[in-house]
Write a protein that binds this DNA or RNA. Sequence first.
DNA 1: ATAGGCCGGAATTTCGAAATTCGAAAGAAT
DNA 2: ATTCTTTCGAATTTCGAAATTCCGGCCTAT
Lengths: 219, 219
Amino acid sequence: MAALSGAVYARLRDEIVAGAVAPGAKLMPQRLALRYAASAAAIREALIRLAAEGFIENLPQRGFRAARTGPDVIWEIAHFRILIETEGARLSIARGGMEWEANLTAAHHRLAHLESRMRGESLDAGQLRLWSASDRAFHEALIGTCGSARLLAQHRLAFDQFKQHVIALDPTLGFRGAELLQEHAGILKAALARDAEGCADALRRHFDTYRRVTPGRAG
Amino acid sequence: MAALSGAVYARLRDEIVAGAVAPGAKLMPQRLALRYAASAAAIREALIRLAAEGFIENLPQRGFRAARTGPDVIWEIAHFRILIETEGARLSIARGGMEWEANLTAAHHRLAHLESRMRGESLDAGQLRLWSASDRAFHEALIGTCGSARLLAQHRLAFDQFKQHVIALDPTLGFRGAELLQEHAGILKAALARDAEGCADALRRHFDTYRRVTPGRAG
DNA sequence: ATAGGCCGGAATTTCGAAATTCGAAAGAAT
DNA sequence: ATTCTTTCGAATTTCGAAATTCCGGCCTAT
């Protein structure tokens, strides 16, 4: 996208994923035009792109609003992300070399360092943002050499939308220090051991604890 | 999307998926504005949406062009579609009831009828279009009760983009009558037998023959 | 002859306003 | 009192033109 429209897209995306926009809230081009110093048309282009990617909804002739959330929406996104991520991990395990191992280990080291220092207290927004970025870096490193740009792009969307919906229900993102440490360690261990099935299992358990936060559903 | 912009989106999408736009061809809003009786801005909105969905590319400050194709692109999309479709089938097999079986059987009946009548000769565009629609209906029926709107939406994108890229290399879509009949029958049989693994295998074989058309690649 | 800079035309992107459409409140009829 | 119609303000959508950026040919200097 171009300079202006693309910049608005990026800023809006960040705000939505960070939980700064309430689910279902209207996003009106003319209002946003003031906040972003752009014309309504440019804002509109950003909104169309966000809608196509699933961050917001677009009802014809009645504007845009932030995606509505709910347990089943979260469940659906989690399911999709598991599907993408386990496949990406499987491919990376099959294709990855030493470089992949090194990147993954480094990402895990940074993440584990943070998680061990965040023992429940001091869950300020800054730390959570840092942790979320490290979490994402680790999961992206896991699937980093899957060889499919499409898979990586879909994973990025699923990751951010998962965060978007979880943060709406729980601003702490269901952060649970000790458990997270063990879960991520388990994922890393299975990946380095080239155990695709074990890695998939570890990922599913990782998500199950997230799902426990929200009321479940059959499926 | 709105009336005009949405209509342009739909028409452009159809033309691209039908192979009417050469890969890499430029899509210029002002030119298209004449063909579609709309302003450049409205065209632009349609193009932005198509780009976000992956049908076309959008290089900042240098416009839109139809997605470039190649064996590895096709391979990647095929891989992704297999992933989505096998998972959708697995879920449908687990959750689907009589209604799902009936829809799937009906879709297969229509598809098989067409395929048995299209023995190599008379591969005119009309028949191929009809067959492609039936093929899509069958595959959508297969995953129809997976319970995830996201999975269905992703499958639709993957299906159409797969067609878009294959048709660019081979206008007959690699149509192979007798084999197709058996492959689709195998998929149906496994699905009705509630054999998720067998269904996944049948789907993979189904795609392998497609892949044979194009030069392979490691992965 | 070639590399590098410059200029002209065309395409992309952005804007502000006009036209269309929606949603709700006020009013009329049953 | 309820339901249907009308009307009006606000929001969405579309447009045509202005501003910015890119691409190619041309010129110049080495």
